[in-house]
Amino acid sequence: MNESDSNPMPSIDDVARVATLSRLALDEDGLEAARRDLSAILGHVAAIQALDVEHVEPMPRPQDVVNRLAEDEPGPLLDREVLLRMAPRTEGPFIAVPKVLGEGGA
């Protein structure tokens, strides 16, 4: 993606890259539909590009509050059996996932 490109019409390659980053599997039709939707929404959103915000501080939360920290003390945890029962695939006391490491990688 081009650093200076604020054109609100993402290419199919842009959309494919965003799908990969989003961990979504889209076929060709899905990518084209997503490109159309994103273009329409980004076209609307582009209005904020015209505002002068040069000396404005970003506001990530609606109040300028400082986060409250908890005491660094162990507290009660959810039971391991309860959490394991929620997992779609388990093997004994473990959550099962597809093989992550390649041949000889272990």
Partner: peptide
């Protein structure tokens, strides 16, 4: 659709133009 849109506006090259700018407009 919203996950794709959110990922787009947070991605390299677009973060400042969309996300940071929107946070400034919020102020």
């Amino acid at each position: 659709r919203r996950i794709m849109l959110g990922t787009y506006v947070l991605s390299a090259g677009y973060y400042d133009a969309y996300y940071t700018r929107a946070l400034k407009v919020r102020r």
